[in-house]
């Protein structure tokens, strides 16, 4: 299994896009940090820090692309046969890809987090302290860290779906589009969803509602809209992730290539 993960990392590390998006992420974060320094009216300094200078949103995009391509590229390039006819079990091949993506997502969130701290120290050393109260009686750093954890959990809910779709459609394009639409559809439909949930209580368990986890973690009122407690939401997210992963696993094992 370690060999397989190493091989996946080798492939990932030799793709230009892997490094290009990392650089792009840092550049974009720097731009927003500078913008919020020069135009604090539009981009609040504390808000920008808590959202990691928009880094979190970009990481989602990059991870959706990476997850769909790590599965779909094997079908696209015809390398799936070379991967599968070896001595390893099929399940191992798939799990090695999941582990690689888990490592990749941790890498992304880590550099985003560290770089946002760096930007704060360099650009805003005097303007606010990390221990200042932000919202919900949490300090700024607490808020940032909690929303990061929340994002990580809900992003993996999306990624598990992307991994499943890439597996079913064998196409990068389909998986990426549905993943991105799914993730950003939340803001569009959440208003309607909250209304419907008031009417039909069980709807609160739908996967889109789980995506509100990062918001709920940093707010003391959000649970009144999501109708779920934070632990319920975390469990719900993990259960959905597990379900999508399990379907992926079954689909992958049964596929004829």
């Amino acid at each position: 299994m370690i060999t397989l993960v190493k091989q996946e990392m080798y492939k990932l590390g030799h793709k230009k896009s892997t490094w290009a998006v990392s650089v792009a992420l840092l550049v974009i974060m720097t731009i927003f940090a500078v913008l919020s320094k020069t135009h604090p009216k539009y981009w609040g300094q504390k808000d920008m820090f808590v959202t990691m200078y928009t880094g979190g949103s970009w990481v989602v995009l990059f991870l959706i692309a990476a997850c769909s391509s790590i599965i779909a590229m094997e079908f696209q390039y015809g390398t799936i046969k070379e991967l599968l006819y070896r001595k390893y079990y099929r399940g191992e091949i798939l799990v090695s890809k999941w582990i690689t993506m888990l490592i990749y997502s941790i890498y992304f969130y880590l550099i985003t987090f560290v770089y946002s701290l760096l930007l704060k120290v360099v650009l805003y050393n005097g303007s606010f302290k990390l221990s200042d109260t932000y919202a919900n009686n949490q300090s700024i750093i607490q808020s940032q860290f909690l929303s990061l954890i929340g994002q990580f959990v809900s992003v993996w809910l999306v990624l598990s779906l992307v991994l499943l779709l890439a597996n079913i459609f064998k196409s990068t394009a389909a998986a990426i589009s549905i993943g991105i639409i799914g993730y950003f559809a939340l803001s569009v439909v959440s208003g309607l969803m909250f209304v419907l949930m008031q009417k039909w209580n069980w709807l609160k368990w739908n996967p889109l509602n789980m995506m509100n986890l990062p918001a709920q973690l940093t707010s003391d009122t959000y649970h009144k809209m999501t109708l779920l407690s934070t632990p319920e939401m975390v469990c719900g997210s993990l259960v959905y992730t597990a379900i999508f992963m399990a379907i992926s696993y079954v689909v992958f094992k049964r596929r004829s290539v």
Partner: peptide, 30 residues
């Protein structure tokens, strides 16, 4: 579901599966 014997097998089926972003040598190393 039973691939133990594949350790002794090498194969080329239909058309070669090639990663465009790797060199030939990197394929062989991989």
């Amino acid at each position: 579901t039973s691939h133990k014997a594949m350790d002794k097998v090498g194969a080329l089926i239909e058309y070669p599966g090639i990663y465009p972003f790797l060199s030939g040598m990197q394929h062989l190393k991989l």
